[in-house]
Design a protein around this nucleic acid. Structure first.
Lengths: 242, 242
DNA sequence: CACATAGTACTGGACAGTCTAGTTTGATTC
DNA sequence: GAATCAAACTAGACTGTCCAGTACTATGTG
């Protein structure tokens, strides 16, 4: 009764899209004096559509969004929208997967390196604080709400978000913890479990609040700082050297 | 552009509904031999509609649900649906608020009493285990997804879920912790923070997984038991008597 | 010229909510 | 037990609106 979409990277959509995209690429993007790419008209429109659609999907959800609105907001005719994206579904999937990847990379790249000399608790505190700042943005929280609300219609998208989001973060963390344990800085039996404990001591409370109470509930920086420190102190009590 | 609904317990909807309900009540519900209430036709239909609508809303979301489907599934004419509920919106709000309340009460009533004699860690472990079992059900996880997905359309519903769910649980927990601290069983500065740490050490990882990976990711009982113990052991390391 | 785009009308289908005409239920009364 | 009556109900047609996706013509643009 209610369609269930799956990501289908070698299926019809992707193939058709591929053909269209290669069409794009025949015109070589000219290079701007400053060195930045000077997007031609088609590329500008493409981006305008993506930007507008992102906004609308995040705000209204998949079903709550209509293509006429996207066309109007991107100042483009509806026909042009369909020239660039095969369907509403394809547009949605592309936007969400792309946002998830970008966000996942940003979270990942934000990880500071541990300088052997500093205090471990302080390092972890900064780490936690950075993660909180990157994750607790309206954009990311809206994305999370959107994907969670569409789990039954787009289960693959949620899986991707899980893997490029919390799972990836916790695996990176676990790898770090394993090193710290090796060096005798932490006492850890299972680095994966310790990573989960760390991650959720830090993230769970504010993320849960913002998910339900809205972006207005995003805490201020000093509150995040304190929150990070409190979480880390519990973590250190359990996993620090006795 | 996109309607935003608010809960309006003394507004038009409620008043109209009240009139209709009093009509119901003129006919006194007859008493079954066994002592259970024998619902008359109207009450049976009312419940059938609620049950069907619950199923469909949880599965397909608010916009993904249509009233014809609800009528068909409850084996009732569409007119009857509108006799019992003023609108799709009213039906949705009633279902969600009612589920949230029922679930909140169930979680709350599941709290065991601490017998002074037993081991505190063991008690907390059982406590955590019970909460996990009650919360990690398909129904509750679907409800959570539904409400989160509708935050921008129905912000009040999400607020209610937050308050009757995690907030209430953590406040009960904090009250308990304050007593334990008083008795010298735990070392706690701020019971609310300790409660948040406890709650999320236990709940965050599985809830997050199930929210994104679907109800198939609900862990088995023995895994929940282990998970509860691991969370509690971290908690005790931080807040137990040194 | 070739191709992308604008603008706009159109198709086909879905859906919330209403309307109507007739039927069922169950309590009351004779 | 039969007649009566009001409220609840069914079935399905109907309205008005919304919307994904298409068609077509005219207008830029490289």
């Amino acid at each position: 009764m209610c369609q269930r979409y799956t990501l289908d990277p070698i299926g019809n959509h992707a193939r058709v899209q591929q053909l269209r995209v290669s069409g794009f690429m025949t015109k070589v993007t000219s290079i701007h004096p400053a060195g930045t790419a000077e997007p031609n008209r088609s590329e500008r429109k493409h981006k305008a559509i993506l930007d507008a659609a992102t906004e609308v999907f995040l705000q209204n959800g998949y079903l709550g969004t209509n293509m006429d609105d996207i066309a109007a907001r991107s100042a483009v005719s509806k026909q042009t929208v369909y020239k660039h994206f095969e369907s509403k579904e394809a547009l949605f999937v592309e936007i969400v997967t792309s946002m998830v990847s970008v966000a996942g990379d940003r979270v990942h790249s934000q990880i500071p390196e541990f300088q052997g000399s500093e205090d471990l608790a302080e390092y972890l505190s900064n780490y936690a604080y950075q993660q909180l700042i990157v994750v607790l943005t309206p954009r990311l929280m809206q994305l999370r709400r959107l994907v969670i609300g569409e789990v039954s219609r787009f289960p693959e998208l949620a899986k991707v978000l899980y893997e490029r989001g919390p799972k990836r973060a916790m695996m990176a963390l676990a790898a770090n913890f394993a090193v710290f344990a090796e060096r005798g800085l932490l006492e850890i039996e299972d680095p994966a479990i310790a990573a989960s404990h760390f991650n959720w001591l830090v993230m769970a409370e504010p993320v849960n609040q913002v998910m339900l109470l809205g972006d207005g509930a995003i805490p201020k920086l000093d509150a995040l700082r304190r929150h990070a420190e409190q979480g880390v102190s519990v973590f250190m009590a359990a996993y620090g050297r006795k």
